[in-house]
Design a protein around this nucleic acid. Sequence first.
DNA 1: GACCTGCTGCGGTCTG
Length: 741
Amino acid sequence: MVSAFDKLAHPVQKWVRSRGWRELRKIQADAIHAIVDSDDDLIISASTAAGKTEAAFLPLISQVLVDPAQTGGFDLLYVGPLKALITDQAMRLEDICHNAEIPVYPWHGDVSASVKSRALKAPKGILLITPESLEAMFIRRGLEVPRLFGAIRAVVIDELHSVLDSERGVQMRSLLTRLEIAVKRPIRRVGLSATLGDMKLASAYLRPDKAESVALMEAKGGESELLLQVRGYVAGNEDDDDDTLAAEDSVAAHLFKHLRGSDNLVFAGARQSVEKYADSLRELCERAHLPQEFYPHHASLSREHRDFVEDRLKDANLPTTAICTSTLELGIDIGDVTCVAQVGAPFSVASLRQRLGRSGRREGQPAVLRQYAVELRHDSASNFVDRLRLGLVRTIAMIELLLEGWCEPPRPDALHLSTLVHQILSVIAERGGAKADRLHRVLCQEGPFRQVSVEMFLGVLRSLGKPETGLIEQSSDGLLLLGPKGEKLAEHHRFYAVFQTPEEFRLIADGKELGTLPITNILTPGMLLIFSGRRWLVQEIHALERVIIVQPAKTGVPPRFGGDPGAIHDRVIERMFDLFESELEPAYMDPTALDMLKEARKNYAWMGFSSSPVIETSEDSHILATRRGTAKNCTLALALGAKGFKVEQHDGFLSVWTHESCDGLMQVLRCVAGGEDMDLFAHSPNLVFEKFHEHLTPELLQQDAHSCRLDVSSLQSTASMLVGTNLEETDAGPTIEPSKK
DNA sequence: GACCTGCTGCGGTCTG
């Protein structure tokens, strides 16, 4: 049998030898056989430093060398989600390709026009590009696409897991389909990924028509040992700021003591919390007269500051701990970190797993996860969220699921109508005009919008063509063209990205930009801020220029950065209830955390949830234990809202207040359980979440919400579960605040 | 009750 190495072209073999590798890794050998011996699509799944890029490109480059294209055009395409990743990968590929005389072109917003024009003049070799730049190519040079990509052999999609079901992922899959249509043949797809919960499902996203023929390569074993601890911290009640500070200070002190002297990542959840901990840790260093080694890292900080922190992390001689949001969750290689800390409950098992993958990458080194759970101290006025320690319980539920190897799958039925609007405008711009049936075939039959029916598609077109929208027009021969508003929208560079970005102020100190703040912060001169881990006084505000001038100060508070709460999966919530109702005492919990869990269980039983899912807390307020994730919970909340109740949503629970005019809660729940027709949108909730939603009719927005944010099919069963138990009032029930207001 | 990601072409000015 011919070995994997022997299947590589000579210049590539020479490069492998020059690296001094004793042998190819198994995943690399497997990928070489698969790529050289067949035309199948492929997913290569392995941890960050396992050599996935080489696994894909060594054989692909070999094919280009052995059988060079007869026509011009790029040979290989790489699509990556981050500019930094593209720059990084281009350097690695240049190293391989240098002797083989295959050109490598990075292409994104920061790449100079001269490199781009060189690539366009003599397209050849490997093009590394972002989805947005590829989009721009279709819109600006639609007619050149066949010439540029006519010879392409394969497209490599990096960080596949991060684009499975997002708006951006749908955009990318749409672009890949459009590329195949432009060159009139299928192009092999190779997905690279670190974290995939379900390889089969990922195949369906990579190649919907032929998911079964996608070859799957997964690097198994070699996973490092995991050291895990959950530490509990109890803060004071809400009115007692000093006590609250004490718990967060204890967390900061523990981080300071245990992380100093090595490289670490502390995921603190929100940017506001990143700023708070970065400030505390900076102060601890200063007080101890020690050099600074704790730095904040999040998307609102200037590129310069973020580069500084990333460079320090890569530098083995400078111990550095980054307090960060998900900015350091994926992307460029920052080297191995000693420990990953998570402060507060994570938002998904998938991201927790991705974060954990940042540590324990060197052989023989364990992966270390330090989880900090900060909860409020109870008193007689505490609300049920605090009494049930929902944050801690969710943390444990997610860790248990992580240990079982589960993570959240994408929602396959999502319509992604905002991105459909974008792609309709883009296809029209690409070709200067398009017929409706062609648009439907490209986007909904061959492309990723397969959940969109013909009728709905026509509804979207009508919505875009309405005079007040004016994005598209129809010529006398039926061709759809961009209207004046559509032209204007598509010609601006803001159009290329399918995701929304908020308006921001720029924060300037001493002539240098510190970063940005959403304009939703109400600021006046004289206010004190914590930003970039330091304290500032607001000096001047230039509203028109969107600039704020600050100077150093002695105190401050972290600003609000806003954000969009995401969805918690049903399975996480189910596990939370399992935890409430079991005796499990995980060994990784410290005594405080364990006490907190026992207390949560005691309160769960004391409040009555072990015998009934509906608790009456006062004459006009109830708590429902729905045991459902965000989408189902939110659907029931809308249904009750439509009947006049005021509803608050929590993990697996709803707090419900009755108004005078409402029917009894149980009566309404029985109606819902009986399948009564409900108008979930009776109170016109906001349904504009995505960038191009504003161009759609309310009916279409409702359908989009149904497809990914709600789950109306669960309504009856959730309500039946809630009314199924006998709800006769117990005498002298406990007095519990339903929730914080 | 959260986070992240991306960006063209043109016209102007400066430098060797």
